[in-house]
C-alpha cells in the first residue's frame, strides 16, 4: 500500500520533471530564435530582389535567390557622392586594424611585463592610471585629439587612425598582459637575472614563449574593438580614409535614389563578417577577453 503510493508519487514527480525539462528546452529554443532572427532576416533580405522585398514579408525565404545586392554593396553602392561600394572602406579597415592591433599588442606585452615582473616604486600607480584610462568615455578626448592630429599632420589619414587606436588600446592590452604575467612566479625572473640574462633576454626567451594564449586573447580583443569602432572612425577620417563602419552608416543613410534594403543588409553582413568569423573560429578566446576586461585579477 505505502509502496504503491510511494511509486505513484515518484512517477508523478518524474512526469513533472519531464514537463519542466521540455519547457526549459522550449524556452532556450525561443531565445535562440530571438538572437538568430536578425541575422536570418539580414541574410534573406540581402538575397532578395527589391521587388520581392516590397511584395513579400520580413521572414519569408527568397523565392529567387539573387546576389545582385551583394555585388552592389561590395562594388557600387553609394556612400554619399561616391559610388564604389564598401570595398575600398573594407580595405581601409584592414589597413587600420592590422598595424594598430600589432603595435598595441606588442606595447601592451612589454608594459605588462614591466609592471608585473620588474616592480619598482610607482609601478602600481602607473597601472592604476592606465586602468582608469580604459574606462574614460572617449568623448572627453575627442576635441583635443582632433587638434593634435592636425598639429601632427596626420588628421584624416589612416596613420592618424592607427595612432589613435594604439593610444587608446594600450590600457586594455597592458591590463591583459599584466594580469597574465603576474601569475608567473617572480623567482623565475630572479633566477634568470642571477644567470646573467637581461631585460630583453628574459622577455624573449622566458615570457614570450609562455604568452601564446594571452596574445591570442589580446589580438582578438583589439581586432574586434578596432574593426567595430565607429566613434574614432567618424571623427578622425575624411572621404577616402573612412573605415567600413562609417561607410556602412553612410550607405544606409544616403538619401539619394531608391532605398535599397537588400544592399543595406548585404553591406551590413560584409561589415560584420570578419569579427563574426573570428568569433566562430576562436570563440573561447573572444569570451576570455570579454570577461578579462570586466573581471580582473
Amino acid at each position: 500500500m505505502t509502496d504503491a503510493v510511494y511509486s505513484e508519487a515518484r512517477s508523478q514527480g518524474q512526469i513533472t520533471r519531464l514537463v519542466l525539462r521540455w519547457l526549459l528546452y522550449l524556452l532556450l529554443f525561443v531565445f535562440a530564435l530571438f538572437y538568430l532572427a536578425p541575422l536570418f532576416v539580414m541574410v534573406t533580405t540581402s538575397l532578395k530582389s527589391l521587388e520581392e522585398i516590397r511584395t513579400g514579408d520580413l521572414i519569408s525565404l527568397p523565392r529567387q535567390v539573387t546576389f545582385d545586392a551583394w555585388r552592389t554593396a561590395w562594388a557600387s553602392a553609394c556612400t554619399g557622392i561616391q559610388c564604389e561600394g564598401v570595398r575600398p572602406y573594407f580595405w581601409n579597415s584592414v589597413l587600420i586594424a592590422v598595424p594598430a592591433v600589432l603595435i598595441s599588442t606588442l606595447l601592451g606585452a612589454i608594459n605588462g611585463y614591466v609592471v608585473a615582473q620588474w616592480r619598482f616604486p610607482g609601478a602600481n600607480i602607473f597601472f592604476a592610471l592606465m586602468l582608469f584610462g580604459c574606462f574614460i568615455p572617449f568623448q572627453v578626448v575627442l576635441l583635443p585629439m582632433a587638434r593634435m592630429l592636425g598639429l601632427m599632420g596626420i588628421a584624416g589619414t589612416i596613420p592618424g587612425l592607427i595612432f589613435v587606436h594604439v593610444i587608446y588600446g594600450l590600457g586594455f592590452t597592458t591590463l591583459f598582459f599584466r594580469n597574465y604575467y603576474v601569475t608567473i612566479p617572480a623567482e623565475l625572473t630572479k633566477a634568470a637575472k642571477v644567470d646573467g640574462a637581461g631585460f630583453f633576454r628574459i622577455f624573449w626567451s622566458i615570457f614570450l614563449p609562455l604568452s601564446l594564449p594571452i596574445i591570442v586573447v589580446t589580438v582578438i580583443w583589439q581586432f574586434t574593438q578596432i574593426w567595430n569602432d565607429f566613434l574614432f572612425g567618424v571623427s578622425f577620417s575624411q572621404a577616402g580614409t573612412q573605415p567600413i563602419t562609417v561607410a556602412l552608416n553612410n550607405i544606409v543613410n544616403s538619401t539619394t535614389g531608391v532605398k535599397e534594403y537588400n544592399v543595406d543588409m548585404a553591406a551590413a553582413i560584409i561589415a560584420g563578417l570578419p569579427t563574426l568569423l573570428v568569433y566562430v573560429v576562436a570563440g573561447k578566446y573572444f569570451i576570455r577577453g570579454l570577461t578579462a576586461g570586466s573581471v580582473k585579477g
Binding site: Y35, V41, N228, T245, V252, A268, T275, Y279
Partner: peptide
C-alpha cells in the same frame, strides 16, 4: 554560441539590422 554572437558585431551592424526589422512600412 548563438546567444553570444551579437557581441562580436559592430553596433552599427546591429543598428542597421534592427532599423530594417523595426521599420513600420516593410
Amino acid at each position: 554560441t548563438i546567444y553570444l554572437y551579437p557581441m562580436a558585431l559592430s553596433m552599427i551592424v546591429t543598428g542597421t539590422a534592427w532599423k530594417w526589422i523595426l521599420n513600420p512600412g516593410l
